[in-house]
Design a protein around this nucleic acid. Structure first.
Length: 571
RNA sequence: CGGGGCGUAGCGCAGCCUGGUAGCGCACCUGCUUCGGGAGCAGGGGGUCGAAGGUUCAAAUCCUUUCGCCCCGACCA
């Protein structure tokens, strides 16, 4: 491709509304442009990389035995009503009516549609296992789109769905997809971890997220420093505390704590540390219940764990009025002693004695509080958020905390959708069997953005070659110098002849501007053709990653470079 | 949806408080010079100041409403 024929609008300055590095660099490198919040144009350069990620995904899906289909983006309401999600999914589902006033939505995910295909076309156990996938534009009306392609409302997703006769088959399909995902993200040059995850509103029995490690990630994950255990913090299990509950040594004593409301304030006032306190959170559930949750003073509640325990959709911290009504005191002074609410405690609290809690009275706390003696907790459960240094639940190691970007998620769905939509086959006994499903998603654009988050420097992008928009950039330093022009043109033609994807910078720009753009675009190999090198019959080859420079004989440069490129493609 | 912020040329911004000729840098066009890390000189084009209403002799500037966008939170493959 000739730069002068191409639409490649690079920006010297960063658009003000771009916060994360991948968003900034994609805008500056002329890959994407915003149309509306969370909705983007892909310009030619951006599309080239996007297609490369798609192609890697496609190849690995095919390798794993999945077959590509394409489903519509516009989906009739009936299918979603049949699964029950028309009501459940919430405002993220963009709904609208056609001219006949019939309800439709833009598909945010396609379990219903794929299951509809399968229930119509698959009638026999001989037709499974079956795994179908598509690479398609999704729409989710996100509450808060942000970070460019990282969290768009419209985005491109690979979604695959497996159908098996039984759980063993479904487990095998899940494992094949899991391995395919590992290959995909390796080929994209990403540093990632597969972690255990919560299934959220997709449902199903278990799932893994594929997390790209990056500071800008919106998720926190834990991983063990000595075994393979890794999980989203939402999901991370904690090892049950060891040791028996100590015997109470102190009596219950009320102390005045004027205007000391937070754990830190109370601890400082009583000259002790936060972990000697037990905090009492008053929470409300989506079912309208108000209850108290006890946690060690320096811990944080993991509300996903609490929801799983209570079997509810969400919990929230109760407002000031509810707290006042439930405890008889303003917030900051709640405690379990004498409290007329259901009390659930983190199991860490079980191992504590003689702790400090609120007294359910303004400006007062209790010291020497002990469970069993001074109050009864209905249950002790794993409710707190994991922190760095916690014991691994699987081995003797310690947990570390990372930030991660979720680029893929695989789910064991079970029969949630196949049952709702009646996707059944006859087995070899002639009996009806409900198909067991799995679903598997990859955010294509998010994967691309993640690659930039992990591969850049102060000057611009540093593409891993397999997803680079071009493999080689040939810089014609001065197009007005006939010799330079001829040599660069010849190298360009030879590289094309070798099957290399090459961008020829034939612009009549000053060298400085061209070098800056080259660094910004991040094409892995840069060949500079200039008068200085040609004097000795040489061109300069520079690797964008690492910056290694080599002088090559102009006559054999194309073959040398093509060889390097083929070695780096990793198909 | 709660809290905060911003809408002035393609991009980055000043002007607004204290109403009175719409500006700067980059980008873009023309010419000359220059050419291995974002050139110099000269000339030039481009704006309903997000929108609507109001106050005023006069509104980018003051007031009201509204739309859009960004950040934090809640939420979320």
């Amino acid at each position: 491709m000739r730069y002068t024929d191409y639409l490649l609008p690079t920006l010297k300055e960063t658009p003000a509304d771009a916060e994360v590095v991948s968003h900034r660099l994609m805008l500056r490198a002329g890959m994407i442009r915003k149309v509306a919040a969370g909705i983007y144009n892909y310009l030619p350069l951006g599309l080239r990389s996007l297609r490369k990620v798609e192609q890697i995904v496609r190849e690995e899906m095919n390798r794993a035995g999945a077959h590509e289909v394409l489903m519509p983006m516009v989906v009739p309401a009936e299918l979603w009503q049949e699964s029950g999600r028309w009501q459940q999914y919430g405002r993220e589902l963009l709904r609208f009516k056609d001219r006949k006033e019939a309800d439709f939505c833009l598909g945010p995910t396609h379990e219903e549609v794929i299951t509809d295909i399968v229930r119509h076309e698959v009638r026999s156990y001989r037709q499974v296992p079956l795994n179908l996938f598509q690479i398609q534009t999704k729409f989710r009306d996100e509450i808060r789109p942000r970070f460019g392609l990282m969290r768009g409302r419209e985005f491109i997703m690979k979604d695959a769905y497996s159908f098996d006769l039984d759980d063993a088959g479904a487990d095998a399909a899940y494992e094949r997809m899991y391995q395919a995902y590992r290959r995909i993200f390796q080929r994209c040059g990403l540093n990632f971890r597969a972690v255990e995850a919560d299934t959220g509103n997709i449902g199903g029995s278990s799932s893994h997220e594929f997390m790209v490690l990056a500071e800008s990630g919106e998720d926190a994950i834990v991983s063990c420093d000595s075994c393979e255990y890794a999980a989203n913090v939402e999901k991370a299990e904690l090892r049950a505390p060891a040791g028996a509950t100590p015997e109470p040594a102190e009596g219950l004593t009320k102390v005045l704590t004027p205007a000391r409301k937070t754990v830190e304030e109370v601890a400082a006032f009583l000259k002790t540390s936060p972990h000697r306190l037990v905090k009492t959170l008053i929470v409300r559930t989506d079912k309208g219940e108000t209850l108290a949750v006890l946690l060690r003073g320096d811990r944080e509640l993991n509300d996903i764990k609490l929801c799983r325990l209570l079997d509810c959709a969400w919990v929230e911290m109760a407002g000031e009025e509810v707290v006042l009504q439930a405890t008889g005191a303003p917030s900051g002074f709640a405690g379990p002693v004498g409290l007329k609410l259901r009390i659930i405690a983190d199991r860490e609290v079980q191992g504590l004695a003689d702790f400090i809690t609120g007294a359910n009275e303004k400006d007062a706390h209790f010291t020497g509080v002990n469970h069993g003696r001074d109050f009864q907790a209905e249950a002790f459960a794993d409710l707190r958020k994991a922190v760095a240094g916690d014991a691994c639940p699987r081995c003797d190691g310690q947990l570390q905390i990372w930030r991660g970007i979720e680029v893929g998620h695989v789910f064991k769905l079970g029969t949630k959708y196949s049952e709702a939509l009646n996707a059944v086959v006859l087995d070899d006994q002639g009996r009806e069997r409900v198909l067991v499903m799995g679903c598997y998603g990859i955010g294509i654009g998010r994967t691309l953005a993640s690659a930039i988050e992990q591969n850049h420097d102060a000057d611009g992008i540093i593409w891993p070659l397999p997803i680079a928009p071009f493999e080689v950039l040939v810089m014609m330093l001065n197009p007005n110098d006939a010799e330079v022009k001829a040599a660069a043109e010849q190298l360009y033609a030879e590289l094309l002849g070798e099957g290399v994807e090459v961008l020829l910078d034939d612009r009549d720009e000053r060298p400085g501007a061209k070098f800056k753009d080259a660094d910004l675009l991040g094409i892995p190999l840069r060949v500079t053709v200039g008068a200085r090198g040609l004097k000795d019959g040489q061109v300069e080859l520079k690797e964008r990653a690492g910056g290694a420079v080599a002088m090559l004989a102009a006559v054999t440069a194309a073959a040398d470079i093509a060889e390097r490129v083929r070695g780096a493609r990793g198909r």
